Structures are given as C-alpha cells and as structure tokens.
Simulated scan of single mutants.
Amino acid sequence: MSSIKQAGIVVSLTMVLCGVAYPFALTVAGQALFPSQAEGSLIERDGEQIGSKWIAQPFVSEGYFHGRPTAVDQLTGQSGGDNMAESNPDRPEHDSKLPGAIETSGSGLDPHISIEHAMSQVKRISETRSLDESEVERIIRETADGESYVNVLMMNLSLDELG
C-alpha cells in the first residue's frame, strides 16, 4: 500500500472519529446525563419559555434588577465586547451609579452581577414595588447562596413571586 493511500485512510478515519463519532457521543451523553443543561437551561413560566439561566437578557423596568452594561443588544443573538481600551475616548463611561459594575460584560451574555451591584439597586426596586428593603436584600442573599455574584434573571423571578 502506498504512503499516499495510507495517509488518506488515516485522514478519513480521523475525520470520521473526530468530526462525527466523538461529537455524536458527547451529544448523546450530554442529553442523557444533563438534559436540562443540554437544552440550554431554559426557564418556563405558565408554559412559556421566558429565558435561560445562563444567558443574560435586558431588564429596563425600574422594578427589576438590571444586568451588567453591555456593548451589544442582548436580544439580537449576537455576543461581543466593545474591545475598546480604557484610554479610548469613544469608550462609554462606566455608570458611577452602579457600584460593583466596574466592567461591561465581555460577551454581552453574562447573566450575573456582583452582590454590590445588586445591593445598589435595592432602594429603587423596593420603592417601585412597594416592598420592604429587607425583602429585596433577602432575595439577593438567597440567590447568591455563598457566591460573590448573583443571577439577574433568578432574582427577578423571585421578585415576581413576591407580587
């Protein structure tokens, strides 16, 4: 057998194994072992999909927690940072009203904010929703669950449960 023919067989076999068999095996294993995560960790309310636990979505209502600033519209399906250096005069100013939101979202898809950023929004949310500030702070603590960040969608769902 010529070396060219052997190389062709090796390349073909490698393409089938790495390009078809391995991805197929991972997909089947992921669906079997982690079905919710494999489907995108989608969250449903009243039979309607309202978002994913791991993909940010914009919240602009004064009665909701707001996510991190982003250079892209989170509803467009695109991701991407602004790629601007700190010294670039065209770079948007960081909102000084958002403690803990020092950086914009690198991908535009980050669903988390720092606890400090969440706490800075407590007064606005409690006033808008006529809630006691301690209730809003409790949601932050419960969502953080020992972490230094919180998931914006999960906090907003908890706010909706309060009424």
Rank of each mutant, 00 (worst) to 15 (best):
M1E: 06
S2F: 03
I4G: 05
Q6S: 13
A7P: 00
G8M: 11
V10A: 14
S12N: 03
L13C: 03
L13P: 00
T14G: 01
T14L: 00
V16F: 11
G19H: 00
V20M: 09
P23R: 01
F24D: 04
A25R: 10
G30V: 13
G30A: 15
A32S: 13
F34Y: 10
F34I: 09
S36V: 02
E39T: 01
E39M: 03
S41F: 04
S41N: 01
I43D: 07
E44S: 05
E44H: 03
R45H: 00
D46A: 02
I50S: 04
I50C: 04
K53G: 02
I55P: 08
A56K: 02
Q57K: 07
P58K: 12
P58T: 11
V60P: 00
E62K: 12
E62D: 15
Y64S: 10
F65E: 07
H66C: 06
R68H: 05
V72H: 05
V72G: 02
G77E: 03
G80L: 07
G81C: 02
G81M: 05
M84D: 10
M84E: 10
M84P: 10
M84I: 08
A85G: 08
A85N: 05
E93W: 09
H94P: 12
D95M: 06
L98H: 13
P99K: 03
S105A: 15
S105H: 12
S105N: 13
G106L: 15
S107D: 15
L109W: 14
L109V: 14
D110I: 03
P111D: 09
P111V: 05
H112W: 06
I113W: 13
S114E: 11
I115G: 12
E116G: 10
E116N: 10
E116P: 03
S120V: 01
K123V: 05
I125H: 02
T128F: 01
D132H: 05
D132I: 00
R138H: 10
E142F: 09
D145S: 15
G146E: 05
Y149I: 14
N151I: 06
N156L: 09
S158I: 04
E161S: 15
E161P: 15
L162C: 15
